[in-house]
Amino acid sequence: MRCIKGIFLLCGMWLSLSAVAQEEMTFRTELNKTRYQSLVEELRCPKCQNQNLADSGSGIAVDLREQVYQMIEQGKTDQEIVDYMVARYGEFVLYRPQHSTATFLLWYGPFILLGIGLLAFIFVVMTNRKRQGRAL
């Protein structure tokens, strides 16, 4: 009995948590709403570090969502909003880091490794072929 009560309580808490995560907001245009949705999904919550602003129920995430909403309605561009967040919370808040010298390896490292792998593969195939040619 106790256990069932506990489960109900947990479910209730879970429901109320997910209810907190999104406030009622009315947008001037449908486009603004779409921009808002994609921005809060793209920006990372600085408090609960593995959640984006859309998913997080922490106080700061609520405030930052409100800020994004205000800035969109004020006619700020997406870039201006992202810059505003980065100026305060750092590159950390971006789930897609900006391209810079510091993030060069992060963005292009895999392609460089792929290139090296391809070259190595070609090299091995070529030498094998040469060796086989000699054997014949």
Partner: peptide
Amino acid sequence: MGRFGMDMGVTG
């Protein structure tokens, strides 16, 4: 309102 906190990059 937590506006100054936001300018300071406060998370809590």
